[in-house]
Write a protein that binds this DNA or RNA. Structure first.
Lengths: 113, 113
DNA sequence: TTCCGGTATACTGCTTTACGTAGTACTGAG
DNA sequence: CTCAGTACTACGTAAAGCAGTATACCGGAA
């Protein structure tokens, strides 16, 4: 992966995972596969698991372990209230950021106020 | 600045600066001020200068020093052919990335193919 | 005139943080 | 026993940002 993309992803994978979990609980391995389906978001498990731990530690996710009939028990993660709020804020910021960048591309900022 | 934003910006500031320079040459201090005008892109000079050095070292920018009547000489940066190509690619990637994230938010990826 | 403070302009060292590679480990089915 | 499913960790790397440095010019005070 180009080094730029690696850098660009910082913070972004966390953002993606939180957005994914808005659709309902999921576990690491499944999240990983969901992300594989979008070319620009392909990641490895060593990226996903640390993010999940971090988000849990910070109170954005909660875990519930459930047995799997096809492997070790799954750790299902779901958003806490704090987590839902966080995604909201992140989505807002992401939108603004995109607007900013669009402005930047259109013309020098300040030329349109 | 929230730590998330700091991380999110990795790779992004470089992207922004290259896009800015598509409008014509500019020097560090001026680039800095152009970015200040967009709330989400406010940055300090200690972020901008290293990026400019890096981009020059990698052949994406070229420099031309010109005297200033109000301070030390300015180092004007402008895109090289390679640089122009790079911005192009980055913009494409950025567009795809946004699509991917939009998909992620709409529904679990894979549910719409 | 000389000095001084402020602004324009440029740079660097060090810290912090997240992604990614590589490696480990355990469970259940065939 | 091997393979897929599932989870985790150690370590290296690279970019953003804080804090500090340095130089050129200008306008006002002494």
């Amino acid at each position: 992966m180009s080094t730029w993309v690696t850098q660009l992803r910082k913070g972004l994978m966390e953002f993606c995972i939180l957005n994914l979990l808005q659709h309902g609980e999921s576990y690491g391995y499944e999240i990983l596969q969901s992300l594989q389906k979008i070319e620009e978001l392909v990641v490895t498990d060593s990226t996903v698991y640390p993010i999940l731990s971090r988000l849990k530690k910070d109170g954005y996710l909660k875990v519930q372990v459930k047995p799997s009939s096809s492997g070790p028990p799954r750790r299902y993660f779901s958003l806490t209230a704090l987590g839902r709020q966080r995604v909201q804020e992140m989505n807002t910021y992401w939108g603004n950021l995109n607007n900013g960048i669009r402005k930047l591309r259109k013309g020098k900022p300040g030329e349109n106020e």
